[in-house]
């Protein structure tokens, strides 16, 4: 998000903001409004397909559900650490902020890794975007699953990079590159994440550009705005988890 041109601290020059807060926060909220409509439309498309196909498969057994529950707990905990980071930022304790943000990133990364393992397992069992072993008459099961969770995973990844840039600034770039290399070398060549991990590389390039264009220290407002984005990612999962996983539990 770009630097706001106006700070409302300049008393008497502008009308008070209609939403009573600073521009960056309004901008982020508006972005989230738009993004929630996008996710909403995807979830509606999923539900539409689900309603029009009565024989929807229910492949998620105990193991998957436990895994997904741990993932949910990871995200929820990351939201907690994030909000504590924002709190520390308001109190001006920047060292603490960094630690809380790193904790948040840790939980976020754990979510991604667990999810990647889950994906790989499903793909190994024979699920592709257009076929699945459980209900041949409902080929779009895989498509909806991968689209929804893939979009969400992309958002989490962007969030982790975003937080990393906020917390560590330029020091985060080498970390990101190392993570990318590890991800690339650790995944087998036929795995979807062998290609997907390049998101990290693109993220590194984009973050480098952002830091080149706006070389400044982030203040408590920036951290709050980053927090908004992170909580939103958590929020979306609160709907994807029951709709995609819990409504398809294997009895």
């Amino acid at each position: 998000m770009a630097e706001a041109a106006v700070h409302h601290d300049v008393a008497g020059v502008y009308e008070p903001s209609l939403f009573g807060t600073y521009s960056k926060k309004i901008g982020m909220w508006l972005f989230l409004a738009s993004d929630s409509v996008t996710f909403g439309a995807l979830l509606f498309a999923y539900s539409y397909g689900r309603i029009s196909n009565p024989s929807w498969p229910t492949p998620f057994g105990k193991e998957s559900i436990i895994n997904a529950t741990i993932m949910t707990a990871c995200l929820l905990s990351s939201s907690l650490t994030m909000v504590l980071g924002v709190l520390a930022a308001h109190r001006g304790d920047m060292a603490k902020v960094r630690n809380w943000l790193l904790a948040t990133m840790f939980f976020g990364a754990a979510f991604i890794v667990l999810h990647a393992i889950e994906w790989s397992k499903l793909i190994h069992e024979g699920m592709t975007p257009f076929t699945n072993p459980w209900a041949p008459s409902v080929p779009q099961f895989g498509g909806t699953f991968f689209t929804l969770t893939g979009m969400h995973m992309l958002h989490v990844t962007i969030g982790v990079i975003y937080l990393g840039v906020v917390a560590l600034r330029k020091k985060f770039l080498p970390v990101l590159v190392v993570l990318w290399l590890i991800g690339w070398l650790a995944t087998p060549a036929n795995n979807v994440f062998h290609l997907g991990v390049h998101v990290l590389l693109i993220g590194a390039v984009v973050s480098a550009m952002v830091m080149f264009l706006k070389p400044k220290i982030y203040d408590s407002h920036d951290i709050e705005v980053a927090g908004l984005y992170w909580h939103f990612v958590d929020l979306v999962w609160m709907f994807i988890f029951p709709l995609v996983y819990l409504m398809s539990t294997r009895i």
Partner: peptide
């Protein structure tokens, strides 16, 4: 319903919307 409750909690507390002005 449960998810909406969870979403409301996240929006209200974590995202601080509870503490914003009513218009927003």
């Amino acid at each position: 319903v449960l998810s909406l409750v969870k979403a409301a909690l996240i929006i209200a507390y974590f995202m601080h919307l509870k503490f914003e002005i009513p218009l927003m």
